[in-house]
């Protein structure tokens, strides 16, 4: 297993039958290009348009007439003052900053245990990767049931305490957030485990043996050989997880609906609510573009840093 250089650059070879291949290549890529355009160009333009208005589907006119509700950049300035939005962003950041490192460390620890062969490895591996294949919405419901005040989590905790534990997880702002994080960690640690194991296995065994023969302890070998050689994979795993964690919705929404109150309201939940409940779509469009721009800038910055 190797890290293949997957920088998006094609390897085109000019051939004797170039015109035919160019035509065929064009036709082959056409459906994908159309679908991509369909989903990016029109939505983008439309959102640009209505983000400069006060339009809502309740307004009684269809969206092309949104100009009647023109308010130029008022939505964008509203973003700056929208406390609930920034809280949601902060909460999302909090979830990322807690869950991703925990998933990473747990996944790495598990992966180190799976590098050698041992009896039952296949079965254990198949079971351990199951959580990430559970439908996220269903996982949300599973954890909803688990964290009921009369439910299994409290039951298990009660084994360790003299009196029965009756924490009201989903009704308490802090506990609800913990519960949501627990669900995320349960579901996505296997992903880190999967990717990091693939990386660990790629560390040449010879070099590890050579290091051991030169007197390096297992921890020293891990520190000086394993981790440095896994740098790219670690970056990939963390990036994927951070991006997905930012989008977190299904599991969380079904578990808590964003509550109690707004205690577990992440950015996607917030946008969902104002889209479907308050229906202030002009404003939502502005938020959407704001996020799009912010993420694009972050992505470009990250790519520049990685290229170094």
């Amino acid at each position: 297993m190797t890290m293949a250089d997957r920088i998006p650059a094609p390897a085109a070879q000019p051939r004797a039958d170039a015109p035919e291949t160019a035509r065929l290549g064009f036709r082959l890529t056409l459906p994908a290009q159309i679908l991509v355009l369909f989903i990016s160009v029109f939505p983008l333009l439309m959102q640009l348009y209505i983000s400069l208005t006060d339009w809502s589907p309740l307004a009684g006119v269809s969206w092309p007439h949104a100009w009647e509700y023109w308010n130029s950049f008022a939505n964008y300035t509203d973003i700056l003052g929208d406390g609930r939005l920034w809280s949601a962003l902060w909460r999302t950041a909090l979830v990322i900053m807690v869950c991703v490192p925990v998933e990473f460390l747990l996944g790495l620890a598990l992966a180190t245990l799976f590098v050698d062969d041992f009896p039952g490895k296949r079965v254990a591996y198949s079971v351990l990767i199951m959580p990430m294949m559970v439908v996220p919405a269903v996982a949300g419901y599973m954890f909803f049931m688990l964290f009921q005040s009369g439910g299994p989590v409290n039951d298990i905790l009660s084994w360790f305490t003299p009196e029965p534990v009756t924490l009201a997880w989903l009704s308490d702002p802090t506990l609800a957030l913990v519960a949501v994080m627990a669900a995320d960690i349960w579901q996505w640690t296997p992903l880190m485990f999967l990717i990091l194991l693939a990386g660990l296995v790629g560390v040449p065994d010879d070099q590890l043996k050579a290091a051991a023969l030169l007197g390096a302890s297992p921890w020293a070998r891990f520190r000086t050989i394993v981790i440095p050689r896994m740098k790219t994979i670690i970056v990939i795993a963390l990036s994927i997880r951070v991006i997905e964690a930012f989008k977190i919705f299904d599991t969380l929404y079904i578990m808590t609906g964003g509550g109690p109150g707004v205690a577990t309201e992440t950015i996607s939940v917030y946008i969902y609510k104002i889209t479907t409940q308050d229906l202030i779509w002009g404003y939502v469009a502005a938020i959407a573009l704001f996020i799009l721009i912010a993420l694009s800038v972050a992505a470009v910055w990250a790519m520049k840093r990685m290229a170094k």
């Binding site: 998006p8 650059a9 094609p10 390897a11 085109a12 070879q13 291949t21 160019a22 065929l24 290549g25 064009f26 036709r27 082959l28 890529t29 459906p31 994908a32 290009q33 991509v36």
Partner: peptide, 16 residues
Amino acid sequence: AAAYGLSRFGSGANLP
């Protein structure tokens, strides 16, 4: 289709 087009003919370089 697009993957084949890119892999073999280099078409659709923007897609990735």
